[in-house]
Nucleic acid binder design. Structure first.
Lengths: 198, 198
DNA sequence: ACTTACATGTAAGCGGTTACATGATTAT
DNA sequence: ATAATCATGTAACCGCTTACATGTAAGT
Protein backbone atom coordinates (compact mmCIF):
# COMPACT_ATOMS: atom_id res chain seq x y z
CA UNK A 1 0.00 0.00 0.00
CA UNK A 2 2.81 2.41 0.34
CA UNK A 3 5.31 1.32 -2.18
CA UNK A 4 3.35 4.19 -3.65
CA UNK A 5 4.98 6.74 -1.39
CA UNK A 6 8.40 5.20 -1.63
CA UNK A 7 8.14 5.76 -5.40
CA UNK A 8 6.85 9.32 -5.03
CA UNK A 9 9.68 10.07 -2.59
CA UNK A 10 12.22 8.65 -5.03
CA UNK A 11 10.83 10.92 -7.76
CA UNK A 12 11.62 13.95 -5.59
CA UNK A 13 15.16 13.49 -6.89
CA UNK A 14 13.92 14.22 -10.40
CA UNK A 15 12.60 12.60 -13.55
CA UNK A 16 13.24 8.88 -13.91
CA UNK A 17 12.24 5.86 -15.96
CA UNK A 18 11.04 2.59 -14.45
CA UNK A 19 14.44 1.20 -15.15
CA UNK A 20 16.14 4.10 -13.40
CA UNK A 21 13.93 3.60 -10.37
CA UNK A 22 14.77 -0.07 -10.25
CA UNK A 23 18.41 0.94 -9.96
CA UNK A 24 17.74 3.64 -7.40
CA UNK A 25 15.75 1.17 -5.30
CA UNK A 26 18.60 -1.24 -5.60
CA UNK A 27 21.41 1.07 -4.53
CA UNK A 28 19.91 3.47 -2.04
CA UNK A 29 16.26 2.92 -1.20
CA UNK A 30 16.64 -0.83 -0.65
CA UNK A 31 17.85 -0.20 2.89
CA UNK A 32 14.31 0.64 3.94
CA UNK A 33 12.08 -0.45 1.08
CA UNK A 34 12.48 -3.54 -1.07
CA UNK A 35 10.82 -3.64 -4.49
CA UNK A 36 11.31 -5.60 -7.69
CA UNK A 37 11.27 -3.97 -11.16
CA UNK A 38 7.89 -5.57 -11.88
CA UNK A 39 6.37 -4.02 -8.82
CA UNK A 40 7.73 -0.66 -9.89
CA UNK A 41 6.36 -0.85 -13.42
CA UNK A 42 2.88 -1.71 -12.14
CA UNK A 43 3.02 0.97 -9.48
CA UNK A 44 4.09 3.59 -12.01
CA UNK A 45 1.10 2.70 -14.21
CA UNK A 46 -1.21 3.17 -11.24
CA UNK A 47 0.35 6.44 -10.13
CA UNK A 48 0.12 7.83 -13.67
CA UNK A 49 -3.55 6.76 -13.83
CA UNK A 50 -4.16 8.55 -10.52
CA UNK A 51 -2.48 11.68 -11.83
CA UNK A 52 0.16 11.69 -9.09
CA UNK A 53 2.94 11.47 -11.64
CA UNK A 54 3.27 12.73 -15.21
CA UNK A 55 4.57 10.38 -17.87
CA UNK A 56 6.16 11.22 -21.18
CA UNK A 57 7.40 8.74 -23.74
CA UNK A 58 10.94 9.28 -24.95
CA UNK A 59 11.45 7.60 -28.32
CA UNK A 60 14.89 6.11 -28.73
CA UNK A 61 16.41 4.84 -31.93
CA UNK A 62 18.77 2.10 -30.88
CA UNK A 63 16.98 1.12 -27.69
CA UNK A 64 13.39 0.46 -26.68
CA UNK A 65 11.40 3.62 -26.06
CA UNK A 66 11.25 4.61 -22.47
CA UNK A 67 8.70 6.34 -20.29
CA UNK A 68 10.06 9.07 -18.08
CA UNK A 69 8.09 10.02 -14.98
CA UNK A 70 7.96 13.18 -12.93
CA UNK A 71 6.12 14.00 -9.72
CA UNK A 72 3.00 16.09 -10.40
CA UNK A 73 1.77 18.82 -8.06
CA UNK A 74 -0.94 16.42 -6.84
CA UNK A 75 1.71 13.80 -6.21
CA UNK A 76 3.86 16.21 -4.25
CA UNK A 77 0.88 17.28 -2.14
CA UNK A 78 -0.14 13.68 -1.53
CA UNK A 79 3.39 12.83 -0.41
CA UNK A 80 3.51 15.84 1.91
CA UNK A 81 0.20 14.76 3.49
CA UNK A 82 1.58 11.25 3.89
CA UNK A 83 4.51 12.49 5.99
CA UNK A 84 2.03 13.78 8.58
CA UNK A 85 0.26 10.45 9.03
CA UNK A 86 1.23 7.85 11.63
CA UNK A 87 3.75 5.44 10.08
CA UNK A 88 3.05 1.72 10.19
CA UNK A 89 5.58 -0.26 12.18
CA UNK A 90 8.57 -1.54 10.29
CA UNK A 91 8.20 -5.01 8.75
CA UNK A 92 11.28 -7.14 8.33
CA UNK A 93 11.83 -10.59 6.90
CA UNK A 94 15.30 -12.04 7.11
CA UNK A 95 15.85 -15.71 6.33
CA UNK A 96 19.46 -15.54 7.50
CA UNK A 97 18.25 -14.77 11.00
CA UNK A 98 15.92 -17.77 10.92
CA UNK A 99 18.88 -19.93 9.94
CA UNK A 100 20.99 -18.53 12.77
CA UNK A 101 18.10 -19.10 15.17
CA UNK A 102 18.01 -22.77 14.15
CA UNK A 103 21.78 -23.14 13.70
CA UNK A 104 22.18 -25.42 16.73
CA UNK A 105 19.99 -28.11 15.21
CA UNK A 106 21.04 -27.43 11.61
CA UNK A 107 24.18 -27.22 9.54
CA UNK A 108 26.64 -25.10 11.56
CA UNK A 109 29.18 -24.84 8.76
CA UNK A 110 26.60 -23.79 6.19
CA UNK A 111 25.18 -21.14 8.50
CA UNK A 112 28.66 -19.73 9.06
CA UNK A 113 29.13 -19.50 5.30
CA UNK A 114 25.79 -17.72 4.92
CA UNK A 115 26.84 -15.18 7.53
CA UNK A 116 30.18 -14.66 5.78
CA UNK A 117 28.47 -14.10 2.45
CA UNK A 118 26.11 -11.60 3.98
CA UNK A 119 29.06 -9.75 5.46
CA UNK A 120 30.75 -9.60 2.07
CA UNK A 121 27.54 -8.17 0.67
CA UNK A 122 27.39 -5.64 3.48
CA UNK A 123 30.89 -4.46 2.60
CA UNK A 124 29.82 -3.93 -1.00
CA UNK A 125 26.74 -2.06 0.08
CA UNK A 126 28.78 0.20 2.35
CA UNK A 127 31.11 1.04 -0.50
CA UNK A 128 28.17 2.01 -2.70
CA UNK A 129 26.57 3.98 0.13
CA UNK A 130 29.82 5.86 0.60
CA UNK A 131 29.77 6.89 -3.05
CA UNK A 132 26.15 8.02 -2.78
CA UNK A 133 27.10 9.93 0.37
CA UNK A 134 29.88 11.85 -1.32
CA UNK A 135 27.56 12.60 -4.23
CA UNK A 136 24.88 13.96 -1.88
CA UNK A 137 27.37 16.10 0.02
CA UNK A 138 28.61 17.57 -3.26
CA UNK A 139 31.94 18.67 -1.84
CA UNK A 140 30.52 20.19 1.34
CA UNK A 141 31.43 19.02 4.82
CA UNK A 142 28.71 17.15 6.64
CA UNK A 143 27.89 19.95 9.10
CA UNK A 144 27.75 22.53 6.34
CA UNK A 145 25.51 20.30 4.27
CA UNK A 146 23.15 19.58 7.14
CA UNK A 147 22.89 23.28 7.88
CA UNK A 148 22.67 24.59 4.32
CA UNK A 149 21.65 21.74 2.03
CA UNK A 150 18.28 21.86 0.35
CA UNK A 151 17.15 18.41 1.27
CA UNK A 152 18.50 16.46 4.21
CA UNK A 153 15.97 13.59 4.05
CA UNK A 154 17.90 11.39 1.62
CA UNK A 155 21.09 11.99 3.59
CA UNK A 156 19.47 11.00 6.87
CA UNK A 157 18.03 7.77 5.47
CA UNK A 158 21.41 7.02 3.95
CA UNK A 159 23.03 7.45 7.37
CA UNK A 160 20.48 4.96 8.65
CA UNK A 161 21.43 2.49 5.94
CA UNK A 162 25.13 2.90 6.67
CA UNK A 163 24.62 2.41 10.41
CA UNK A 164 22.53 -0.69 9.73
CA UNK A 165 25.18 -2.32 7.56
CA UNK A 166 27.96 -1.48 9.99
CA UNK A 167 25.94 -2.96 12.81
CA UNK A 168 25.35 -6.03 10.67
CA UNK A 169 29.09 -6.45 10.24
CA UNK A 170 29.78 -6.17 13.98
CA UNK A 171 27.01 -8.67 14.70
CA UNK A 172 28.27 -11.00 11.98
CA UNK A 173 31.78 -11.08 13.45
CA UNK A 174 30.34 -11.98 16.80
CA UNK A 175 28.21 -14.76 15.30
CA UNK A 176 31.15 -16.22 13.39
CA UNK A 177 33.24 -16.20 16.52
CA UNK A 178 30.61 -18.02 18.56
CA UNK A 179 29.75 -20.52 15.84
CA UNK A 180 33.41 -21.34 15.30
CA UNK A 181 33.88 -22.08 18.96
CA UNK A 182 30.77 -24.26 18.80
CA UNK A 183 32.14 -26.19 15.84
CA UNK A 184 35.46 -26.64 17.66
CA UNK A 185 33.67 -27.84 20.76
CA UNK A 186 31.63 -30.32 18.69
CA UNK A 187 34.87 -31.61 17.14
CA UNK A 188 36.40 -31.85 20.61
CA UNK A 189 33.39 -33.73 21.94
CA UNK A 190 33.55 -36.29 19.15
CA UNK A 191 37.32 -36.66 19.82
CA UNK A 192 36.43 -37.46 23.38
CA UNK A 193 33.70 -39.87 22.31
CA UNK A 194 36.15 -41.80 20.14
CA UNK A 195 38.79 -41.58 22.84
CA UNK A 196 41.00 -38.58 23.70
CA UNK A 197 44.49 -38.36 22.32
CA UNK A 198 46.89 -39.03 25.21
CA UNK B 1 7.13 -18.90 1.71
CA UNK B 2 9.28 -19.17 4.75
CA UNK B 3 7.16 -17.95 7.54
CA UNK B 4 7.08 -21.73 7.58
CA UNK B 5 10.63 -22.01 8.87
CA UNK B 6 10.29 -19.11 11.24
CA UNK B 7 7.44 -21.05 12.86
CA UNK B 8 9.36 -24.33 12.93
CA UNK B 9 12.33 -22.53 14.48
CA UNK B 10 10.09 -21.00 17.12
CA UNK B 11 8.74 -24.46 17.97
CA UNK B 12 12.29 -25.57 18.78
CA UNK B 13 11.69 -23.84 22.09
CA UNK B 14 8.93 -26.34 22.87
CA UNK B 15 5.21 -26.94 22.56
CA UNK B 16 3.09 -23.89 21.88
CA UNK B 17 -0.40 -22.84 20.85
CA UNK B 18 -1.14 -20.41 18.03
CA UNK B 19 -1.77 -17.81 20.64
CA UNK B 20 1.56 -18.51 22.34
CA UNK B 21 3.34 -18.18 19.01
CA UNK B 22 1.67 -14.86 18.34
CA UNK B 23 3.17 -13.60 21.59
CA UNK B 24 6.58 -15.10 20.89
CA UNK B 25 6.60 -13.49 17.46
CA UNK B 26 5.63 -10.26 19.06
CA UNK B 27 8.31 -10.15 21.74
CA UNK B 28 11.34 -11.86 20.29
CA UNK B 29 10.99 -13.07 16.71
CA UNK B 30 9.57 -9.79 15.43
CA UNK B 31 13.05 -8.34 15.14
CA UNK B 32 13.66 -10.46 12.06
CA UNK B 33 10.27 -11.82 11.06
CA UNK B 34 6.95 -10.04 11.24
CA UNK B 35 3.75 -12.09 11.31
CA UNK B 36 0.17 -11.51 12.43
CA UNK B 37 -1.83 -14.04 14.47
CA UNK B 38 -3.95 -14.85 11.41
CA UNK B 39 -0.90 -15.74 9.38
CA UNK B 40 0.26 -17.99 12.17
CA UNK B 41 -3.02 -19.85 12.51
CA UNK B 42 -3.13 -20.57 8.79
CA UNK B 43 0.51 -21.57 8.68
CA UNK B 44 0.03 -23.95 11.61
CA UNK B 45 -2.86 -25.63 9.76
CA UNK B 46 -0.64 -26.13 6.74
CA UNK B 47 2.33 -27.41 8.73
CA UNK B 48 0.10 -29.88 10.58
CA UNK B 49 -1.33 -31.06 7.24
CA UNK B 50 2.21 -31.54 5.93
CA UNK B 51 3.14 -33.53 9.01
CA UNK B 52 5.94 -31.15 10.01
CA UNK B 53 4.28 -30.46 13.34
CA UNK B 54 2.06 -32.55 15.59
CA UNK B 55 -1.12 -31.05 16.96
CA UNK B 56 -3.09 -32.04 20.00
CA UNK B 57 -6.27 -30.44 21.23
CA UNK B 58 -6.27 -29.45 24.88
CA UNK B 59 -9.85 -29.13 26.14
CA UNK B 60 -10.30 -26.33 28.61
CA UNK B 61 -13.32 -25.76 30.75
CA UNK B 62 -13.46 -22.05 31.30
CA UNK B 63 -11.66 -21.03 28.12
CA UNK B 64 -11.88 -21.99 24.46
CA UNK B 65 -10.10 -25.25 23.67
CA UNK B 66 -6.62 -24.79 22.38
CA UNK B 67 -4.43 -26.66 19.97
CA UNK B 68 -0.88 -27.23 21.12
CA UNK B 69 1.79 -27.86 18.51
CA UNK B 70 5.13 -29.60 18.66
CA UNK B 71 7.82 -30.02 16.04
CA UNK B 72 7.74 -33.53 14.52
CA UNK B 73 10.88 -35.41 13.48
CA UNK B 74 10.06 -34.55 9.85
CA UNK B 75 9.73 -30.91 10.80
CA UNK B 76 13.05 -30.92 12.60
CA UNK B 77 14.75 -32.54 9.61
CA UNK B 78 13.15 -30.08 7.19
CA UNK B 79 14.32 -27.17 9.34
CA UNK B 80 17.85 -28.57 9.52
CA UNK B 81 17.91 -28.91 5.71
CA UNK B 82 16.67 -25.33 5.40
CA UNK B 83 19.64 -23.99 7.35
CA UNK B 84 21.96 -25.35 4.66
CA UNK B 85 20.21 -23.57 1.80
CA UNK B 86 21.16 -20.12 0.54
CA UNK B 87 19.12 -17.49 2.40
CA UNK B 88 17.10 -14.97 0.43
CA UNK B 89 18.21 -11.40 0.94
CA UNK B 90 16.57 -9.53 3.78
CA UNK B 91 13.40 -7.61 2.88
CA UNK B 92 12.52 -4.50 4.82
CA UNK B 93 9.63 -2.08 4.61
CA UNK B 94 9.72 0.93 6.86
CA UNK B 95 7.27 3.77 6.33
CA UNK B 96 9.05 5.96 8.85
CA UNK B 97 12.10 6.01 6.61
CA UNK B 98 9.98 7.05 3.63
CA UNK B 99 8.64 9.91 5.72
CA UNK B 100 12.14 10.98 6.74
CA UNK B 101 13.23 10.75 3.12
CA UNK B 102 10.43 13.15 2.15
CA UNK B 103 10.62 15.28 5.30
CA UNK B 104 11.99 18.34 3.49
CA UNK B 105 8.88 18.68 1.36
CA UNK B 106 6.48 17.43 4.04
CA UNK B 107 5.53 18.16 7.62
CA UNK B 108 8.81 18.56 9.54
CA UNK B 109 7.16 18.70 12.95
CA UNK B 110 5.06 15.60 12.32
CA UNK B 111 8.06 13.65 11.11
CA UNK B 112 9.97 14.60 14.25
CA UNK B 113 7.10 13.31 16.35
CA UNK B 114 7.05 10.06 14.41
CA UNK B 115 10.75 9.61 15.06
CA UNK B 116 10.26 10.34 18.75
CA UNK B 117 7.47 7.79 18.99
CA UNK B 118 9.57 5.19 17.29
CA UNK B 119 12.36 5.86 19.76
CA UNK B 120 9.99 5.41 22.67
CA UNK B 121 8.95 2.11 21.14
CA UNK B 122 12.57 1.10 20.74
CA UNK B 123 13.17 1.72 24.44
CA UNK B 124 10.28 -0.55 25.30
CA UNK B 125 11.51 -3.23 22.96
CA UNK B 126 14.99 -3.06 24.48
CA UNK B 127 13.55 -3.50 27.96
CA UNK B 128 11.66 -6.60 26.83
CA UNK B 129 14.72 -7.95 25.01
CA UNK B 130 16.75 -7.49 28.16
CA UNK B 131 14.26 -9.62 30.07
CA UNK B 132 14.37 -12.32 27.38
CA UNK B 133 18.16 -12.14 27.49
CA UNK B 134 18.35 -12.75 31.22
CA UNK B 135 15.89 -15.61 30.83
CA UNK B 136 18.00 -17.21 28.10
CA UNK B 137 21.20 -16.86 30.10
CA UNK B 138 19.53 -18.51 33.08
CA UNK B 139 21.95 -17.07 35.60
CA UNK B 140 25.08 -17.85 33.61
CA UNK B 141 27.53 -15.21 32.43
CA UNK B 142 27.50 -14.55 28.71
CA UNK B 143 30.84 -16.23 28.00
CA UNK B 144 29.89 -19.27 30.01
CA UNK B 145 26.57 -19.51 28.25
CA UNK B 146 28.07 -19.15 24.79
CA UNK B 147 30.61 -21.86 25.60
CA UNK B 148 28.32 -24.27 27.45
CA UNK B 149 24.73 -23.46 26.57
CA UNK B 150 22.72 -25.96 24.56
CA UNK B 151 21.42 -23.56 21.97
CA UNK B 152 23.09 -20.28 21.10
CA UNK B 153 20.92 -19.49 18.04
CA UNK B 154 18.15 -17.66 19.89
CA UNK B 155 20.71 -15.72 21.89
CA UNK B 156 22.58 -14.61 18.78
CA UNK B 157 19.43 -13.41 17.02
CA UNK B 158 18.47 -11.61 20.19
CA UNK B 159 21.82 -9.83 20.21
CA UNK B 160 21.06 -8.80 16.64
CA UNK B 161 17.72 -7.39 17.70
CA UNK B 162 19.26 -5.49 20.59
CA UNK B 163 21.97 -4.03 18.37
CA UNK B 164 19.36 -3.01 15.82
CA UNK B 165 17.24 -1.14 18.35
CA UNK B 166 20.24 0.58 19.90
CA UNK B 167 21.37 1.67 16.46
CA UNK B 168 17.87 2.92 15.79
CA UNK B 169 18.06 5.07 18.91
CA UNK B 170 21.42 6.58 17.94
CA UNK B 171 20.15 7.29 14.45
CA UNK B 172 16.92 8.76 15.82
CA UNK B 173 18.80 11.20 18.07
CA UNK B 174 20.79 12.35 15.08
CA UNK B 175 17.67 12.81 12.97
CA UNK B 176 15.90 14.79 15.69
CA UNK B 177 18.93 17.00 16.07
CA UNK B 178 19.11 17.78 12.35
CA UNK B 179 15.37 18.25 11.91
CA UNK B 180 15.23 20.60 14.89
CA UNK B 181 17.95 22.76 13.41
CA UNK B 182 16.03 22.74 10.12
CA UNK B 183 12.86 23.85 11.83
CA UNK B 184 14.79 26.61 13.63
CA UNK B 185 16.34 27.73 10.36
CA UNK B 186 12.92 27.80 8.68
CA UNK B 187 11.60 29.92 11.57
CA UNK B 188 14.66 32.16 11.26
CA UNK B 189 14.14 32.54 7.53
CA UNK B 190 10.53 33.61 7.98
CA UNK B 191 11.64 36.06 10.72
CA UNK B 192 13.98 37.52 8.19
CA UNK B 193 11.28 37.64 5.54
CA UNK B 194 8.96 39.52 7.88
CA UNK B 195 11.83 41.65 9.18
CA UNK B 196 14.47 40.52 11.72
CA UNK B 197 14.18 41.45 15.36
CA UNK B 198 16.76 44.12 16.07
C1' DA C 1 -17.81 -0.38 33.82
C1' DC C 2 -13.97 -1.16 30.90
C1' DT C 3 -10.00 -3.25 29.30
C1' DT C 4 -6.85 -6.95 28.64
C1' DA C 5 -5.93 -11.75 28.16
C1' DC C 6 -7.29 -15.99 26.37
C1' DA C 7 -8.23 -18.61 21.95
C1' DT C 8 -9.65 -19.27 17.53
C1' DG C 9 -11.72 -18.76 13.09
C1' DT C 10 -13.75 -16.98 8.02
C1' DA C 11 -13.49 -14.26 3.86
C1' DA C 12 -12.33 -10.62 0.70
C1' DG C 13 -9.03 -8.13 -1.41
C1' DC C 14 -4.62 -6.25 -2.25
C1' DG C 15 0.21 -6.68 -2.72
C1' DG C 16 4.25 -9.21 -3.85
C1' DT C 17 6.82 -12.94 -6.22
C1' DT C 18 8.04 -15.76 -10.07
C1' DA C 19 8.10 -17.29 -14.62
C1' DC C 20 8.00 -16.13 -19.11
C1' DA C 21 8.74 -13.07 -23.23
C1' DT C 22 11.29 -9.73 -26.38
C1' DG C 23 15.27 -7.73 -28.43
C1' DA C 24 19.19 -4.54 -29.44
C1' DT C 25 23.78 -2.81 -27.58
C1' DT C 26 28.01 -2.70 -25.17
C1' DA C 27 31.66 -4.62 -22.59
C1' DT C 28 34.76 -8.64 -21.38
C1' DA D 1 31.36 -16.15 -27.35
C1' DT D 2 29.17 -14.62 -23.10
C1' DA D 3 27.43 -11.65 -19.93
C1' DA D 4 25.65 -7.39 -18.59
C1' DT D 5 22.99 -3.20 -19.66
C1' DC D 6 19.10 -1.05 -21.42
C1' DA D 7 13.85 -1.18 -21.31
C1' DT D 8 9.58 -2.91 -20.88
C1' DG D 9 5.68 -5.95 -20.48
C1' DT D 10 1.95 -10.12 -19.31
C1' DA D 11 -0.02 -13.66 -16.40
C1' DA D 12 -0.56 -16.80 -12.65
C1' DC D 13 -0.07 -17.68 -8.20
C1' DC D 14 0.86 -17.22 -3.51
C1' DG D 15 1.15 -14.72 0.66
C1' DC D 16 -0.20 -11.05 3.54
C1' DT D 17 -3.37 -7.71 5.46
C1' DT D 18 -7.77 -6.24 7.15
C1' DA D 19 -12.26 -6.59 8.64
C1' DC D 20 -15.40 -9.15 10.85
C1' DA D 21 -17.07 -12.67 14.23
C1' DT D 22 -17.46 -15.14 18.90
C1' DG D 23 -17.27 -15.70 23.81
C1' DT D 24 -15.37 -16.29 28.72
C1' DA D 25 -12.68 -14.64 32.59
C1' DA D 26 -9.64 -11.88 35.19
C1' DG D 27 -7.87 -7.59 36.44
C1' DT D 28 -8.33 -2.19 37.25
Amino acid sequence: MSLKYAVLAALLEGEASGYDLAKIFDVSVSNFWAATPQQLYRELDRLAAEGLIDARVVPQERRPNKRMFTLSEEGRADLAAFTAKQPKPMAMRDELMVKVQAADVGDLGAVREHVEERMTWAHGKLARYERVRRHLLGGLGEDEFLAEGERVGPYLTLLGGIALEEEYLRWGRRVLDVLERRAARAAGASDQASGPVS
